[in-house]
Nucleic acid binder design. Structure first.
Length: 275
DNA sequence: CCTAACCCCTGCTTGC
DNA sequence: TGCAAGCAGGGGTTAG
């Protein structure tokens, strides 16, 4: 599922194709992917036709297309794919929207489960719901182990839940939460306010390292994820725990354990993650 | 403040 | 081999 590294890769792969292009026309095949506050096809036609794409950005797991008037926000959720393809490419059964670009190509949205989709905003999207409620960008230079430690102190939730909370840290999902906790050697059920300053610093480093490494490898492709050109990532080959329940830990060879935390599957090493 | 349940949805996995 | 039930999961919402 697309998390921060995957969304970052989508944005990077699309930017060159989209910047300066205009949207000639729009075809909607399934209106379920058009989300509120302007969730009907007419509103999208009106807002997007003839608009010029001036920016392609990421905030958390959201993709932002800045237009000469207004902004288009996209979230891929579980199985969404935002890609630029040639007009000749065949349309999959799960393509729900396509935008004809001024260079003759198509910006398409495919989503098997239709959890993801688009929203329109007129003003600065960072100041509008739902983006205005997002927490820190974990690769932002302003973020630090000490800032994380101070936030951890204010909550008493399992650290796994804290990492998944987009209002605290924007962009971490199930894969990178488990991978970061493994690398930091921290039990996923440990309460956030029980982490020491030293553990917070270690976790901070683990989060940044795992996200940066994943970005470098184009993200993780478990099943569906592809970037803006349809390319898979390769960080899944370096996962230490995610998807490896019941298999031996690469470090200590004890069997990795699967548990549920906050309704989310969590895999960890009972031996390596002791603090 | 916190947790759990529920919803959205479909394809894969599991059990018989 | 076929079929049905169960499961997964981001994030919003609702109930407790």
């Amino acid at each position: 599922m697309p998390e921060l590294p995957e969304v970052e890769q989508v944005v990077r792969s699309l930017r060159g194709d989209l910047l300066g292009r205009s949207m000639v026309s729009l075809e909607v095949f399934h209106t379920a992917v058009l989300h509120e506050p302007l969730g009907d096809e007419e509103a999208f036609q009106e807002a997007l036709t003839d608009r010029v794409i001036q920016g392609v950005r990421r905030r958390g797991k959201y993709i932002l297309l800045d237009l000469d008037q207004g902004h288009l926000i996209c979230h891929l959720r579980m199985t969404g794919k935002l890609m630029v393809v040639s007009q000749a490419s065949t349309r999959s059964a799960h393509r729900h929207l396509q935008i004809h670009l001024s260079d003759g190509r198509l910006l398409v949205y495919d989503d098997v489960r239709r959890f993801g989709g688009f929203a329109l905003v007129k003003e600065d999207p960072l100041k509008m719901p739902p983006l205005n409620r997002l927490g820190v960008e974990p690769l932002d230079e302003a973020w630090s182990g000490e800032v994380l430690y101070q936030r951890l102190r204010g909550r008493a939730v399992p650290i796994k839940n804290f990492l998944l909370d987009q209002h605290e840290i924007a962009g971490i999902g199930n894969i990178y939460a488990d991978e970061a906790l493994f690398r930091a050697g921290i039990r996923p059920r440990k309460r956030s306010n029980r982490l020491t300053r030293r553990e917070a610093a270690t976790l901070f480093e683990a989060i940044q390292t795992v996200l940066q490494e994943a970005i470098r490898l184009g993200g993780s492709t478990i099943r569906d994820y592809r970037d803006g050109h349809g390319e898979a990532g390769s960080f899944q080959d370096f996962h230490q725990v995610y998807g490896r329940a019941g298999k031996p830990c690469f470090i200590c060879h004890h069997l990795l354990k699967r548990i549920q935390i906050g309704g989310r599957t969590t895999v960890y090493c009972p031996h390596c993650q002791r603090s």
